[in-house]
Design a protein around this nucleic acid. Structure first.
Lengths: 192, 192
DNA sequence: CGATTCTTTGAAAACAGTCAATCTGTGTGG
DNA sequence: CCACACAGATTGACTGTTTTCAAAGAATCG
């Protein structure tokens, strides 16, 4: 499974075989069955996590027991809770597997070490952070500007490739809609 | 006005007098009157902008003419459109002054140069990016999870110091609510 | 003071959420 | 292999929230 991560890195930047070994030395593969947790609310998140295979979701459960999905993470995506990692505070989020999943974990100390010792790796991580930020800006825009139907259309355009791997009620949760509303939005859209 | 920026940098990291000079050499101060634009929709955004004094807002105007505020930027905040800056694409956003404002601008080439030549500056910028990302995650959470009233309360908690400098209809726009709804939410909250 | 911007209020309509029931497909254990 | 359980999707009726439109009050600024 490390090869998937290596291929990802090579698609973004160039590192030496030696550097690849350094990364491999601190990488841990964790396998998750469907519905298994990677992070549970209340725990401190201590890793950087790269999804090699499968599908994860990060979400919060509110007082009423409703789930609100913060992120989806299929292969070649990162997941975790940056705030908990940074401040070493208990996370309000859960992360679990939608499909059987293989994640690559690197703990904080080792990860920061890699960033310090491998400039190309550091640059790659910063570029990813930059991109993530831009993506989150787009999502904010959608969340405050769009109607239910527009949100769904925007989601389809943004993630055309993974839509069929996600149960609809989770898409609804990601968009801040009830599952029933999303269902109705879809049937109305078909009529047009 | 450069001193404000220098004080900001010194509060985050340590740089030499020489490095401070390098930064000063590429900094341009721009003064904006109330309602004056810093960026207009359709233009490419080419700077990093630090607010020394005053108050800016970044927003999008949709087909119906409704404004949706992406960000507020008072003193010691950054503003701009990262996506436009990164990809050199026309920005869908406008940025204008809510109050008379002094912004410090550094164009992309010079800024990247500073990041390369001054490691402490580069680290500072990455830390800020990290923080911005965390803040945007929180905002996404609020946008998809909260009711109108909760959104307003959350806003008050997050920005207690600047609330009274922003017209209410702009807060509504930032939260994805109509001005009328926010007005009603407020009067109801007073009753409790 | 007059003009403009901002906020509030009211009534109606549109929109989205809730609850409950039904329908569908999938997979598991007997 | 079938029956059953279970997760997911849909539908209907209802409730509640939010928007829209229009108008009237504040507040601010030149």
């Amino acid at each position: 499974m490390f090869e998937v991560f290596l291929a990802y890195i090579n698609s973004k930047t160039k590192i030496t075989a030696e550097e690849a070994e350094m990364i491999k030395a601190v990488s841990v593969i964790k396998k998750l069955r469907k519905r298994q947790y990677l992070l549970q609310e209340g725990d401190v998140w201590r890793y950087n996590a790269f999804v090699c295979k499968g599908f994860l979701r990060a979400y919060h459960v509110d007082d009423k027991g409703h789930e609100h999905i913060m992120n989806f993470a299929p292969e070649n995506y990162w997941t975790g809770d940056r705030e908990s990692l940074q401040n070493e505070t208990p996370s309000p989020f859960n992360i679990d597997a939608i499909e059987e999943t293989h994640v690559l974990l690197i703990n904080k100390e080792n990860f920061d070490d890699l960033c310090r010792k491998i400039p190309a790796f550091n640059d790659m991580i910063n570029t990813i952070l930059q991109r993530s930020f831009i993506a989150s800006q787009r999502r904010i825009h959608a969340a405050i500007s769009f109607s239910a139907e527009e949100k769904y259309q925007h989601f389809l355009n943004t993630f055309p490739n993974i839509v069929n791997r996600i149960p609809q009620h989770m898409i609804a949760s990601y968009l801040g809609l009830s599952p029933e509303t999303l269902s109705r939005v879809r049937t109305q859209a078909v009529k047009k």
